[in-house]
């Protein structure tokens, strides 16, 4: 009797292990995931309700966490305020200069206008991946709202990722910190281009890789999407979307590894309302 039980237990375990490997082999790296999308679509209303119901509890925990962080944050904000004042003065000058440049340039051919072709769709984050290896969130807007795969997703602070899959009522957003994320970016005003990649496990740090080491990048400089377009191909992201600011830019690292560290503008750990820029692939 006991032997029979042991045999049955081993058989079930072997079946589950084989099942896991079969599922993994069939679905790893596949773009089309009809079954998962169907399950996700069925349960997205429940997730949405659970998300709203649990928001006060989440806010309470966030409040405790932020209180811990507040002391360190205060010093950083003070130094940022000084910097922001300097930038505000510089910004006034830049605005005047910009007005003059607008008259000179034909804005119809400017990439900045391409951005206006996108239609923003606002969504709320209803679920988040529990592991740092997969940095994805689920939002409550989907293909029924015009959302398509690869549409850029932004928060109030800048780009946060792109749509990885879209169901009728919900979509999965692959964040900048997901290991499969890679976005062409450039440092302004120097114009150094590279690819923004994440450092897994550290959501406050991105890496601008493959940069041109002949040009020097300094800490505090802003990184935006490059939004390239060549020979009928185009980036999924419009140019000029803010990504982050350069934090560490040692000359040694730039020359040896051709990379610098970037802190994302958007707080990728506390996302609530986001906007999907739809229509980009159809323009």
């Amino acid at each position: 009797m006991y032997r029979k039980q042991v045999r049955r237990r081993r058989a079930v375990l072997a079946l589950l292990i084989v099942g896991s490997f079969v599922l993994l082999s069939l679905t790893y790296g596949q773009g089309s995931r009809g079954f998962q999308r169907s399950v996700s679509t069925i349960f997205s209303p429940v997730q949405s309700v659970a998300d709203r119901a649990l928001k006060p509890a989440r806010d309470l925990v966030d409040w405790f966490d932020k209180t811990f962080d507040a002391r360190g944050e205060n010093d950083r904000l003070k130094s940022q305020l000084v910097k922001a004042r300097e930038q505000a003065v510089a910004g006034e000058e830049a605005l005047q200069e910009n007005e003059q440049l607008r008259k000179l340039l034909d804005l119809n051919r400017s990439p900045a206008l391409v951005y206006t072709a996108y239609e923003p769709v606002t969504g709320r984050v209803i679920a988040r991946s529990p592991t740092v290896w997969r940095s994805t969130v689920t939002i409550d807007v989907g293909s029924g709202d015009g959302v398509e795969v690869d549409d850029p997703v932004i928060s109030g602070d800048g780009l946060i990722g792109r749509i990885a899959s879209a169901g009728p009522g919900s979509s999965q957003v692959m964040l900048l910190t997901d290991h499969a994320s890679a976005i062409s970016a450039k440092v302004v005003p120097v114009g150094v281009q590279g690819v923004i990649k994440p450092e897994i496990g550290n959501p406050e740090d991105l890496i601008l890789d493959f940069i041109d080491s002949t040009k020097e990048v300094h800490g505090g400089q802003t990184v935006v999407t490059a939004g390239w377009r060549a020979q009928g191909l185009a980036s999924h992201f419009p140019p000029g979307l803010p990504l982050g600011e350069v934090t560490k830019a040692s000359i040694v690292e730039q020359e040896a590894n051709e990379q610098v560290d970037v802190r994302p503008f958007a707080d990728l750990r506390n996302l609530d309302l986001v906007q999907v820029l739809t229509g980009g692939s159809r323009r």
Partner: peptide
Amino acid sequence: GFSIGLFVDCLLVESLGISSL
């Protein structure tokens, strides 16, 4: 464990099998 992992992967539209295993 297998079922809960499968359900999580389905809801997050991720590769099936990792969480299950």
